[in-house]
Design a protein around this nucleic acid. Sequence first.
DNA 1: GCCAACGTTGGC
DNA 2: GCCAACGTTGGC
Length: 137
Amino acid sequence: MAFWLIKSEPLAYSWSEMIKDRRAPWDGVRNYQASNNMRSMKCGDYAFFYHSNKGMEIVGIVKVVKEYYPDHTDTSGRFGMVDFQKVKSVKNPVSLKSIKANPALSNIALVRQSRLSVMPIRDREWEIILEMADTQL
DNA sequence: GCCAACGTTGGC
DNA sequence: GCCAACGTTGGC
């Protein structure tokens, strides 16, 4: 099983909307690296749900429930998407600030590649962040 | 609101 | 195939 992190601007699609919808297709990604990361996702993989711009913190956990398929909102046919299902809110949201302050997380893509919206998370990083979030899967 | 980082586009 | 111009993301 693999772990990921997905970003969403709360003004565009917030965690509270994700909770309400329970399940959401992750359309609208128009970046090859992000799209390729989604292509690698398997059903059952987990992802942190991160609020970019406003909030700048990990607020929840989702899991992949449908693997990569074409993004119908992309008329060029180049990009795909997966479907996520809400798993749970984290007990303590983990801020970008606290992630940056943790030396064990200094290689995380969230820090190194700030514009990437879908990224892999290493097993160890996943565990550390879960601990910071005071949350268990 | 600014700007750094980075991706894309299009002229040559 | 290079690179200037331009657009977008997202932290600050």
